[in-house]
Design a protein around this nucleic acid. Structure first.
Lengths: 236, 236
DNA sequence: CGCATTCTTGATGTACCTCAACACTAGTGG
DNA sequence: CCACTAGTGTTGAGGTACATCAAGAATGCG
């Protein structure tokens, strides 16, 4: 049956909220869910619009953007595969959600998903735990945004991205040099860290000149001296 | 019975998470809960310590503080009566929680409270909704911290505090002058907004000189021109 | 009243922003 | 294969908002 197929070949079947459901329960969600591809740069949800959909992210990276009336922007969260997308129990969306890379979603009508949640305590419990984690992360980020220097912000960000890239590759050498591609361009990094493009660029070359990282070209970064980076992330 | 008494005279019985329980269910919590008074300045939970307790806040205001290794601090949240206090499903506390005013708590062992939550889907649901609200607020605050000017931060903060003070008093004149006491001193306001004491002070007197607010003395503030304040909160 | 704390105000410094030019990369079509 | 272009990243010069350092002034408590 076609409906079952969309979960059968789901790359995040076990990591996403759906992981809490058995095959029988999953079929209920199946009738609601719909696969959707979005291109890099395309928005999934606009701040201010009615909150009608939510989704599981299957592949790609999304950004969660808050902005002022006069157009200043701040990325308040990044969403990775298996993350839950959207605002439940809210009439309006507070943040704009846009694809940073081509991405694939499993989209649900918001209200219908909330109803499913009501009947599945384990799934709601998982969502609670994720939300608590996200809240802690957001609060940690408040400290970074408000109190850390540009150098500390960049160093911390690169460590974050490295651990994320490293975990998926499951490297044998946790302390050796690691090279990976950033999913964000300089402007987006600036939007994450509350800086400007120029400051991001300058700090990156400063770290390269210090021999702590390498910048082989494109969006690639190599972590040459992880402890050096960690030191700069903590005090500056 | 003495156990029942601690809920019977609870000031936040209906607003707190317990509001989701009927009298019978409440007695179960009763056997776990314990009233505790804390003095202004006293800490309830320390960052890095094992997360062994949680609580409902009955009266007073608490601050949630994140800090760097070298002592820079950021208040990442304020807790008011009926708010839930503590970190569930975590071994360690990530933030220090300290009383800004004398306060009263209804304290529970964390693990025991988690077990109660398991059996009471409605309470867990309430907690989820609160957590989602807190997450949205934290994300909004990220925009403020990273992208707004000192004037915008102060104006927005005063509007926040005014609406909080106004709502409890249930004023008849939403647009007339409103006077209230800030629960925070200048240093704490600075810690909330990611500024310094001096900048907070300067911006306050600037707003007073502009006729937008009055500073009658002590920690009192009067909102003289709410729309003027709102304008300054949005663009500056 | 006297002492400690908090708040205000001033002078100076600096980290980051802004504006501007240039270099690199990648994709397109001749 | 190489110009052509648009997007992205780098580097420089200069400005500014806020921090820092340093005195006083006001407040509040014993």
């Amino acid at each position: 049956m076609a409906l079952m197929d969309i979960c059968a070949d789901c790359a995040v079947r076990d990591q996403a909220l759906c992981g809490s459901l058995d095959d029988r329960e999953l079929s209920a969600l199946n009738t609601l869910g719909q696969r959707r591809r979005v291109a890099r740069g395309e928005s999934v949800i606009w701040a201010g619009d009615e909150s009608v959909i939510c989704a599981n992210l299957l592949s790609g990276v999304l950004k969660l953007v808050a902005s002022t009336a006069d157009g200043r922007e701040q990325i308040v969260g990044l969403l990775y595969p298996a993350d839950f997308v959207g605002q439940l129990y809210a009439d309006q969306a507070d943040f704009t959600i846009t694809a940073l890379t081509d991405a694939e979603l499993c989209v649900f009508p918001r209200k219908a998903f909330e109803r499913v949640l009501e009947d599945h305590a384990r799934m709601e419990h998982l969502l609670l735990q994720r939300t608590l984690l996200a809240l802690n992360e957001a609060r940690g980020r408040m400290l970074t945004l408000a109190r850390k220097s540009a150098e500390e912000k960049i160093a911390g960000f690169l460590l974050d991205m490295a651990s994320r890239a490293g975990s998926s590759g499951c490297r044998a050498t946790p302390d050796g040099p690691l090279t990976f591609d950033l999913p964000l361009n300089r402007g987006q990094i600036a939007d994450v860290l509350g800086l400007t493009i120029e400051t991001v660029s300058r700090q990156m070359t400063k770290l390269r000149n210090a021999g702590v990282i390498g910048l082989p070209g494109g969006r690639a970064v190599t972590i040459a001296d992880r402890t050096g980076l960690a030191v700069r992330a903590e005090a500056g």
